[in-house]
Design a protein around this nucleic acid. Structure first.
Lengths: 167, 167
DNA sequence: AAGAATAGTTGACTAATTCCACTAATTTTG
DNA sequence: CAAAATTAGTGGAATTAGTCAACTATTCTT
């Protein structure tokens, strides 16, 4: 069952439409494909907008999570952002080098490193949020607030289902 | 420039929804973050489900596009899947090696290679669609058909906006 | 106290991405 | 029509991201 056929112009066989759009065919029945292309483009826009700062991928998200969850551990951070623990180490190393966040040994569990954002980190995060907000708005400006909210909700439910299955 | 999305930011979601006690903070106001984590997990599931076949990423999507657009050129394929041209070359090389697709020099424009899926390629694509369908269903089973349809539509609109912005 | 489990770290290895140069064919244009 | 610019396809180098296994230190389990 094709739920959403794009352009099914004419009969299937033969040559490419010179003017028309490319058909997704059966691929159009899967959200994974659409998700991937949108996310690809979005993260490319993000990289272009922040290229001056030379941030490694995942650093922005990590700093955002640290800000929202003061004292979070690196393991929890890894789980939330979806990165390997070893990658998180590298990111936190960099955050500390920049002076945007700090590690503090936990008093209760001395294996843990509690993470905190610094004032300087907050300032840079503000800047980054502004940049990302701009690039996202360029893509989302035609989605109504209701649609945007629904999109977030659907993505959250999908993510929750992912985590339930193998989390 | 009453951008809806800007108005929506900051007002909507400040809860700790899905997996637990970790808050998204301001990050929750951006779809890019949610998009990334869902897509990451989804593509990880896909990789796990197809690991036996050892397919390089983008191969499945490429074959799907070739099936839906017989005679498509490698450039057009690259554009549609969102890959670099050189990556597409590698993928088509592999598709030919497997016997799943063929290159044919175009009669009208002898620079072009027209791409066609083979019967064997169709068979394997059927198999892949089944596998991907299963893994997606595990994530999407709780989304209603209407929600699913809306999600696809929103993603398409976002993608169209991306493409419009940078040619 | 012994053993399993968890947090963090390191380094090695593999896959993916980007970038640039190059050939061939076609289109543009002066 | 020839020169220049453009487009399609290819190969390779360099950078980066993602995965994995080993290892220390600490805590939990029994």
């Amino acid at each position: 069952m094709k739920t959403h056929s794009t352009a099914a112009r004419g009969s299937a066989s033969r040559q490419m439409p010179d003017t028309g759009r490319v058909s997704l065919g059966r691929l159009g029945d899967f959200v994974g494909f659409r998700l991937r292309r949108v996310q690809n483009q979005l993260s490319r826009d993000f990289a272009a907008a922040t290229s001056a700062k030379g941030l490694r991928s995942g650093l922005f998200s990590s700093l955002g999570i640290i800000e929202a969850n003061p004292g979070i551990s690196q393991s929890e951070l890894s789980r939330e952002v979806g990165l390997d623990k070893s990658v998180t180490v590298t990111i936190v190393d960099e955050l500390e080098k920049f002076g945007w966040a700090v590690r503090e040994r936990s008093k209760e569990d001395r294996r843990r490193h509690e993470l905190f954002i610094t004032d300087e980190g907050k300032a840079h995060l503000d800047e980054l949020f502004t940049i990302v907000g701009k690039t996202e708005d360029a893509v989302l400006h035609q989605l109504s607030p209701a649609e945007l909210h629904l999109l977030s909700e659907l993505l959250d439910r999908m993510y929750a289902a992912c985590m339930r299955d193998e989390g």
